[in-house]
């Protein structure tokens, strides 16, 4: 395990170095943005590049080719089959090689670095949890073993402390979703910390989808008292309804919005801090800064390992709380208006 971490940090340093050596002058902002943003190829280390497939839907037609076609032998960007990559995006170009402004109908569903990383995480999730499910079948009714005994307390924690505690008796329906988002986020957070890993959970598109799922599940499982609270908040005078209803409706969306931003910001910030610490070496252009940078970055990496778990937990916990709010039976609805009488 220790060796793995050492390997991890050494790789991280190498990639940082690789980014800096590309241009003449070192620009930490560009390097960091490049590392955090999505890409059409996967740089594991300097010279070790995996060109990922580009998949485009151009007016209903599928176009697919390797992203290596966008580079010539001198690593300069060139147009290919009427498309060109600029600033990490693919544009339709005219004969002169200029991007066509306002071109509609081009959808980019390329297997980017983030998508590829997600596939890796999914393969890992499948491997881990299918084998765990298998061992539950194999030694049914017996004490857990190996990987099973590592994940079982986590699964039980999610069930007892997150689902049961926040949702109540109907928790069982939400368990698959809660377990899936928890392990999806956690695994991807950890993979993002790996050397050359993609910043998947620090990408707003990913957190947007996850938050939208929570929103949809919350809205569709909302019972009478949930909607009652939104459209006729108990204890609020009727004439306040024109203010209260929009506020409550906005509240439906702000909750998942906060989920989206929280996960995105936490993971991205962690990556930025670690990359910034490494950038210091190149900004000062001194090897003496190295040990200090590495020490801080090591500390940050450990913190990030914790944050990886914490953010997965928070996302799952808050989702469970929103579900709980949607399915809760408000028996006390009637007294809420007379709360001060008690």
């Amino acid at each position: 395990m220790k060796k793995l971490f050492i390997l991890l940090f050494s790789f991280l340093t190498i990639t940082a170095h690789a980014a800096s050596s590309e241009g003449g002058e070192f620009r930490p902002g560009d390097m960091i943005t490049h590392h955090i943003a999505d890409d059409y190829s996967w740089h594991f280390a300097d010279g070790v590049v995996l060109y990922l497939p580009v998949v485009l839907i151009d007016n209903g037609q599928f176009v697919s080719f390797s992203s290596s076609n966008f580079y010539d032998e001198n690593h300069n960007l060139v147009p290919y089959r009427g498309y060109k990559m600029e600033h990490g995006h693919i544009y339709k170009v005219n004969e002169a090689g200029e991007p066509i402004e306002g071109y509609k109908g081009l959808y980019d569903i390329s297997i980017t670095k983030n998508v590829a990383s997600m596939f890796v995480s999914v393969a890992l999730l499948f491997f881990v949890f299918f084998s765990i499910a298998g061992s539950y079948k194999k030694n049914a009714g017996k004490a857990p073993r190996g990987m099973q005994s590592f994940f079982e307390p986590i699964i039980i924690f999610i069930r007892d402390e997150i689902a049961k505690a926040n949702i109540g008796p109907k928790y069982e329906r939400y368990m698959p979703y809660l377990l899936t988002i928890f392990f999806f986020i956690w695994f991807n957070n950890l993979l993002g910390l790996m050397p050359g890993g993609a910043n998947l959970t620090g990408n707003i598109a990913v957190t947007l989808v996850l938050a939208a799922m929570t929103l949809l599940i919350t809205v569709f499982s909302g019972n009478k008292s949930y909607w009652g609270h939104i459209f006729a908040t108990p204890g609020v005078p009727k004439w306040l309804a024109p203010i209260m209803i929009p506020v409550e409706l906005i509240g439906i969306f702000t909750k998942p919005f906060s989920l989206m931003v929280r996960l995105f910001a936490n993971i991205t910030a962690g990556h930025i801090i670690i990359l910034s610490l490494f950038s210091l070496i190149f900004i000062f252009q001194s090897i003496a800064v190295g040990p200090l940078s590495v020490a801080f970055a090591t500390f940050m990496n450990f913190l990030e390992l914790f944050v990886a778990l914490l953010q997965a937990y928070i996302f799952t916990l808050l989702s469970a709380m929103y579900f709980g709010g949607a399915v809760e039976e408000h028996d006390h609805v009637d007294d809420m208006g007379h709360g001060d009488a008690h």
Partner: peptide, 29 residues
């Protein structure tokens, strides 16, 4: 948010949710 990633994330996540529910979470729970 990029369209491509939203698309893949949605598709993948739904598949993962379905498969894990069916073959992992239900048996484990």
């Amino acid at each position: 948010p990029g369209f491509g990633l939203i698309f893949w994330q949605l598709v993948t996540f739904l598949i993962v949710l379905f498969l894990l529910t069916k073959f992992a979470w239900k048996p484990i729970m």
